[in-house]
Design a protein around this nucleic acid. Structure first.
Length: 559
RNA sequence: GCGCCCAUGGCUCAGCUGGAUAGAGCGUCGGACUACGAAUCCGGAUGUCGCAGGUUCGAAUCCUGCUGGGCGCACCA
């Protein structure tokens, strides 16, 4: 239980002690700032430490050490979790937790099982995460894949933190690009019928276009030759977009990503979403006209310059539709909206913020996660890619080649906003260069131990039959402390929208386990110790499993 | 020209809301399988946290300037 965690209990102890000092007039303060309690890096500094005394030094006009003494003097450890507390360095208060307390925590982890790590931080608030959102003009490529995983895992993390999550894909199925798609199919169709045509280089070159044209030919023959070209192109656009979108959905599903909804940009026009938005903005006085062009005063909200929402030719811009889309999101009752964008769109953020503020929503309700580009490599050498020429490595190809688990894990090994080198050969390699197997191996190894114990007639002990005192080797304490950190890691990851924190945590935890495994035997002649260690193993497996699940990566029992 | 992001061992990167002696992996050198799974482990070496100031008890972290790199600055999406 998070409320009962050691960290929270210590924090409460310190708050009470400091509160008592204030009440007695020893500390002259109006109110107490939030108490920071952190696990220490070094054993000499105890298990947890707080810097509160140093924070208070200036406002209370006292020396940090003096304040620390007062606070420690007022600690009332009624639940007896502390071995001792010490004042150290410039004024840290270090807490040494009684050994027995650690192992007791294990029992909570075991009891909570699959729900360990979940919190109610979000209290059911509704969050929509919009990601991928590629135009249906071609299959998803490697760059989309990273955004897809980041979005999916951010959503998972928030869900584990108690938010009500809705995953959405915005289909950019209006505008020029779509028209180009239809044309592309049209020209290939003509080619297949033996007409000599010049294929424009603004059109999509990929082989999938030819396949689609071929399908149409097989189905309907040459009957489109007699029809109106513009009408045919529109029909081809719809047909191609439908096929491609189905392919995208399938590819995403293979990658473990399922959306709650695919939202069509066209629907915004059909339902007057865009027109309604413009009327709304105009009424609020954020729109002005310059000849035939309509401008939105985004500078009122800190943007560099105003933006066009309706072009000279009368057509609304992409931006106009996007604000209408976000308006629609808010109308559906989401408390927070998260957009996952390619980092090259960062310049778009101020105007989007302007858009939602004009609609009366605070800046903070729209959070944008930027995902940097992926450098695709093979054995250290860049893989040539060019969307124009149709030479790109698709997401499907990558997933098929390296596997879902390795692909997902590799996309989460860096902060989202930093560039990522993705080496196809390294991602397939079963070594330390490829941490996904390192972590999965830890899980498989534990399962193997548990099987072995089972074979030897040693079942998993019930919680009550485990003597916590028997887990006191430093490596065991370190493992338990790592397990205890998990809910905090999830919480931090949710707060900052940084999924890579889970990945790094998993590497740490797996490392601690492998190290312990090589040094000590879990199953031994000593039955009581064996039981205690088996119990510890089970808890490690629980956390590995929960964390991997969060990343959408499997936790195999055998490899 | 303006704006955003980045700069940490040879390489690729972590570093939580400022905390105590800056960490991993790769690579390198040297070790561990008659052992619950060697897809593992143990040990050695490697740093002016781009540069210069500032803020304070304390700065890789915050502020300013500079250098170097990426991206953006559409009536494209």
């Amino acid at each position: 239980m998070v409320d009962g965690s050691i960290k929270h209990r210590l924090t409460a102890l310190v708050e009470e002690a400091a509160g008592a000092c204030i009440a007695e007039g020893l500390l002259k303060l109006e109110n107490l700032p939030p108490v920071e309690m952190e696990m220490t890096k070094e054993a000499a500094h105890g298990d947890y430490a707080t810097n509160l005394a140093m924070i208070l030094a200036s406002p209370a006009r006292m020396s940090p050490r003096k304040i620390a003494e007062m606070i420690t003097g007022h600690l009332r450890d009624e639940r007896n979790i502390l071995e001792k507390s010490e004042i150290a360095g410039p004024g840290f208060i270090n807490f040494f937790v009684r050994e027995q307390v650690w192992a007791e925590e294990l029992k909570d982890i075991e009891r909570l099982g699959k729900s360990y790590g979940s919190t109610d931080t979000g209290r059911g608030r509704k969050i929509q995460v919009e990601f991928v959102s590629a135009n249906p003009t071609g299959p998803l490529h490697i760059g989309h894949a990273r955004g897809a995983v980041v979005g999916d895992v951010v959503a998972n993390i928030l869900a584990m933190s108690g938010y009500d999550i809705f995953r959405e894909y915005y289909i950019n199925d209006a505008g020029n690009q779509m028209n180009n798609l239809g044309k592309s199919v049209w020209y290939r169709y003509l080619e297949l019928l033996g007409k000599s045509v010049e294929f424009p280089d603004t059109c999509y070159q990929g082989d999938y276009i030819r396949d689609i044209a071929g399908d149409i030919l097989k189905k309907d023959g040459d009957l489109y030759l007699a029809k109106d070209e513009g009408e045919t192109i529109r029909a081809f656009t719809d047909y191609a977009a439908g096929i491609i979108l189905e392919g995208i959905k399938e590819d995403l599903k293979e990658f473990g990503i399922v959306f709650d909804r695919y939202f069509s940009e066209r629907v915004l026009y059909v339902n007057d979403g865009v027109a309604g938005l413009l009327a709304d903005l105009e009424e609020k006085g954020f729109i002005y006209r310059e000849e035939e062009t309509l401008w939105f005063k985004t500078t009122d909200f800190g943007d560099d310059k105003d933006r066009v929402v309706v072009r000279k030719n009368g057509e609304p811009t992409y931006f106009a539709a996007d604000i209408a889309y976000h308006k629609n999101k808010y109308e559906r009752g989401f408390d927070t909206i998260i957009d996952i964008w390619g980092a090259d769109h960062h310049g778009y953020i101020p105007r989007m913020h302007a858009g939602i503020q004009a609609l009366g929503h605070s800046r903070e309700t729209l959070r944008v996660v930027l995902v940097q580009l992926v450098n695709l490599l093979r054995d250290g050498k860049p893989v040539a890619m060019s969307t124009r020429s149709g030479e790109f490595v698709t997401m499907r190809e990558v997933v098929e080649e390296v596997g879902r688990d390795a692909a997902r894990y590799n996309f989460l090994m860096r902060r989202s906003d930093s560039h990522l080198d993705f080496d196809l050969e390294v991602a397939k390699r079963q070594s330390n260069e490829n941490p996904v197997y390192y972590v999965q191996y830890a899980h498989a190894r534990i399962c193997s131990i548990l099987r072995m114990a089972q074979d030897r007639g040693i079942g998993m002990p019930a919680s009550a039959d485990v003597d916590p005192q028997l887990l006191r080797i430093p490596e065991e304490i370190a493992l338990i402390k790592a397990l205890i950190r998990f809910p905090e890691i999830v919480e931090g990851s949710a707060r900052t929208l940084e999924p890579h924190r889970i990945t790094f945590y998993l590497n740490d935890l797996a490392g601690l386990f492998h190290s312990y495994y090589n040094k000590y035997k879990v199953i031994s002649e000593d039955e009581a110790v064996t039981k205690a260690r088996l119990f510890l193993m089970k808890c490690i497996a629980i956390v590995l499993n929960n964390a991997l699940l969060l990343l959408g990566v499997s936790a195999p029992e055998k490899m």
